[in-house]
C-alpha cells in the first residue's frame, strides 16, 4: 500500500476516534469506532490497516487502535 493512502486511512481512523473522544465510557467509544469502520470501510481498507497494525500501528490513536484490534480479531486473516 502506498504511503499516501495508508496515511489517509490512518488519519481517517484517528479522526473517527477523535469524534468519539467525548465518550467517557471507553468500552462504548471503542465499540462505536469499530462499528463505524466495519460498516463504512471496504474490506480492502480494513485489510491494509490491519497489516499496518500488525507491523507497527504506532500512528494510531489509542482508541482507534483498540477498535481495529477488536475488528481484526473478528475477521478472517
Amino acid at each position: 500500500m502506498s504511503g499516501t493512502s495508508l496515511q489517509n486511512n490512518i488519519r481517517m481512523a484517528n479522526q473517527i476516534a477523535r469524534n468519539f473522544e467525548f465518550e467517557q465510557d471507553e468500552e462504548k467509544a471503542v465499540a462505536a469506532i469499530a462499528t463505524h469502520i466495519q460498516r463504512f470501510w471496504a474490506p480492502l481498507m480494513r485489510e491494509k490497516i490491519f497489516a499496518y497494525l500488525r507491523e507497527d500501528g504506532s500512528g494510531l490513536a489509542p482508541r482507534a487502535r483498540q477498535a481495529l484490534e477488536r475488528l481484526m480479531e473478528n475477521e478472517p486473516a
Binding site: S2, T4, S5, N8, N9, R39, F40, A42
Partner: peptide, 10 residues
Amino acid sequence: PGLRIPNMFD
C-alpha cells in the same frame, strides 16, 4: 461495503 470515491482514488 465497497469503496467510496476518495477510497477509489487511493
